[in-house]
Design a protein around this nucleic acid. Structure first.
Lengths: 197, 197
DNA sequence: CTACTTACTTACCAGTTAGTAAGTTTTTTC
DNA sequence: GAAAAAACTTACTAACTGGTAAGTAAGTAG
């Protein structure tokens, strides 16, 4: 049996190490910017070893998105997230993006894949759509409750505001990559100013 | 002499046709998703002909961004744009993004290049930074005047709001690519609702 | 102890990549 | 109309791409 998720930090198997490295490269340099050779060299294995775990790059890419989707669902349902007040849930979301910034200014999954979307394998496209839809629906719910309970303020529908906010956050990480961390902080500051009642 | 900009629609020379096609492919499929062979085949010339006009792909990419920057400056200074009221200038900006949407849901230049930014040649990086900076400064000015004259409303500084709005627009085109036109319209609708007094 | 499975390596492959050097045709200049 | 410059084509490379087939070493199950 593989060692995919048990509690403590067991030494990750090759399968996981491949996925971790591919994720890093995806979020720091883009999907078309790494090859099986790159991965193999850095992991100290032969390219064919990667094909053994992920027969094609499509499979690898799809596994990447699928894992992120699994993480999103897990995070969203975590008691320490699900039980927060809406305005705190919003702050928790911002913390996730801030964390990306802290890791070599990684963009988010969506921002990494959107531009090349049409060149991606269908399974990846489909998973990414689901990822974005579920995240948006979650935030819409947070915003709806937040306005009802008075902790958050905004015009328009929760769904529209959620789409706008997430789009802004994805873009903000991209701007941080092109310039530096400052514009990200400015944009997030603006979001807080407008939303927090 | 080359035929780069004269008034009417002269038949575009190869140099321009290369740039036009490369731009289309960049905005519709991403920078790493096309090669000199692709360009050559579709233009009915040999790959070496492209190397003749743009010795390396770096040169081609840089020429692409440089042209966009030139267009931005030209557009911004056009009487039919510069002489508008701020709220109309904002609408003119939205029209540009809406036009991208209408052309096969192209993303904007920034959105096309941000994810792979670190893999781009330095000259391209630098030009893209300038492009984004000048656009942001222009919008900040529009927003500042717009609030002073009462046509636009928002919290915070013009610079912060400008960064936020442009980031949102870039992201909105990416979301449109991943899903469909609907989320773009929703997000732009939200921007209008909030900004137009 | 044997059979089987897992996780690889070695050795390929055909196709594509960006890029170059040398020659040829077309256009411009004088 | 000759010389020169511009705009190509032909022919080639070396490196890399994702991917496959066959072999092997180590662990696991009965």
């Amino acid at each position: 049996m593989t060692n995919q998720s048990s509690a403590a930090a067991l030494p990750p198997d090759t399968r996981t190490r491949i996925l971790d490295l591919a994720e890093t490269l995806l979020l720091e340099r883009g999907f078309n910017a790494f090859s099986y050779q790159h991965l193999a060299k850095e992991l100290g294995v032969k390219p064919a070893a990667i094909h053994y775990h992920y027969p094609s790059k499509d499979d690898l890419g799809t596994a990447l998105v699928t894992r992120q989707l699994r993480r999103l669902r897990k995070w969203r349902d975590l008691p320490r997230v699900a039980d927060l007040k809406p305005e705190e849930q919003f702050e928790a979301l911002l913390a996730v993006y801030d964390n990306h910034l802290g890791h070599e200014r990684r963009v988010c999954l969506f921002g990494a894949l959107a531009a090349d979307f049409r060149t991606l394998p269908p399974a990846m496209q489909s998973e990414l759509r689901t990822f974005n839809r579920e995240l948006t629906e979650w935030l819409a719910q947070v915003l709806a409750v937040g306005r009802a309970t008075g902790g958050l303020r905004y015009m328009g529908s929760p769904a529209a505001k959620a789409a706008q906010v997430l789009t802004t956050l994805a873009g903000a990480l991209q701007v941080a990559r092109v310039h530096d961390e400052t514009p990200f902080q400015v944009i997030v500051g603006q979001l807080r100013l407008e939303l927090l009642a």
